[in-house]
Amino acid sequence: MNTPSAIRKVYQGAADRHQMFRMFDRHAQRPNRFEGDASALYAGDWFEIAEREHDYMFEILPPLWIRGSMFAMREFLIGSVTSVFFALRIDGVIRFFHGYCDLSDGRSVEAMRLAIIERETRPVRAMTREERLEHIWSATADAFRGYADETSPRYLPGQRVITFFSDTGSAGLKLLDDLTDDEIAAKLPVQLRHLPDALAA
């Protein structure tokens, strides 16, 4: 199965409530979902939300803890991974974020906070190739994304695959990581297609 990097932005722009709830479990289709430890799939994911969604999540349940402008959800997603919500002042504006942190690592919340600030204070709006792929994965409906299994002879079980339509209109599965630059551009919304490449931090 793909092993994502430690801390990663998984959606460009602020997610609305529907998209936020979809991204809370971006890997629900993984094979053998209830077997093994999938913490690494989730820990490190983060994305921006609106103030309304931030406040809504604060009011659902009493937080596990509140630390300044951050709070953690009482219910854990998997193992020691839970949602942490951030209200951060970036370039003079308060913005709101959701991140999955592994609370067994006492540094994970602060590392997430610093990574978000570093990423969002870059002077030029840009996306890395990895951010483009993660945005495509996050924004694609479940019917058009999934994981290879034992019935997919071309791919290793657990690899992320996405439906891609050719110029002739035929549909087929392709590894997410193998999308070409042109295929990535075709899958991105128009406003993101021509953003400059950003160097991975």
Rank of each mutant, 00 (worst) to 15 (best):
Glu75Gly: 10
Leu77Asn: 15
Ile78Leu: 05
Ser80His: 07
Ser80Asn: 07
Ser80Gln: 05
Ser80Met: 04
Val81Trp: 01
Val81Ala: 06
Thr82His: 04
Thr82Glu: 04
Val84Glu: 02
Phe85Leu: 09
Phe86Arg: 01
Ala87Asp: 06
Arg89Pro: 10
Ile90Lys: 00
Ile90Trp: 00
Asp91Met: 08
Asp91Glu: 11
Asp91Gly: 03
Gly92His: 09
Gly92Ser: 10
Phe97Trp: 08
Phe97Ala: 01
Phe97Gly: 04
Phe97Val: 01
His98Gly: 09
His98Val: 06
His98Pro: 06
His98Arg: 11
Gly99Tyr: 00
Cys101Gln: 06
Cys101Asn: 10
Cys101Pro: 05
Asp102Ile: 11
Asp102Glu: 15
Asp102Gly: 14
Leu103Val: 07
Ser104Asp: 12
Asp105Ile: 07
Arg107Val: 12
Arg107His: 15
Arg107Glu: 13
Arg107Leu: 15
Val109His: 11
Val109Trp: 10
Val109Asn: 11
Glu110Val: 14
Met112His: 08
Met112Glu: 06
Arg113Met: 11
Arg113Ile: 14
Leu114Gln: 13
Ile116Met: 03
Ile116Ala: 02
Ile117Tyr: 04
Ile117Trp: 01
Ile117Met: 04
Glu118Met: 12
Glu118Asp: 09
Glu118Ser: 11
Glu118Gln: 11
Thr121Phe: 01
Val124Trp: 03
Ala126Ser: 11
Met127Ile: 12
Met127Gly: 08
Arg129His: 07
Arg129Leu: 11
Arg129Gly: 10
Arg129Lys: 11
Glu130Gln: 15
Arg132Ser: 08
Leu133Cys: 00
Leu133Asn: 00
Leu133His: 01
Ile136Arg: 08
Ile136Thr: 05
Trp137Val: 08
Thr140Val: 02
Ala141Phe: 14
Ala141Pro: 13
Ala141Ser: 15
Asp142Ile: 14
Ala143Phe: 06
Arg145Met: 03
Arg145Cys: 03
Arg145Lys: 13
Tyr147Glu: 04
Tyr147Pro: 00
Thr151Cys: 12
Ser152Glu: 15
Arg154Asn: 13
Tyr155Lys: 03
Tyr155Val: 08
Tyr155Ile: 03
Gly158Trp: 11
Gly158Pro: 02
Gly158Ile: 07
Gln159Ser: 10
Arg160Asn: 06
Arg160Gly: 05
Phe164Gln: 12
Ser166Pro: 07
Asp167Thr: 12
Thr168Asp: 14
Gly169Gln: 10
Ser170Asn: 10
Ser170Lys: 14
Leu173Ala: 06
Leu175Pro: 00
Leu175His: 00
Leu175Arg: 05
Leu175Glu: 08
Leu176Lys: 00
Thr180Met: 07
Thr180Gln: 07
Glu183Arg: 03
Glu183Thr: 02
Glu183Asn: 00
Glu183Met: 03
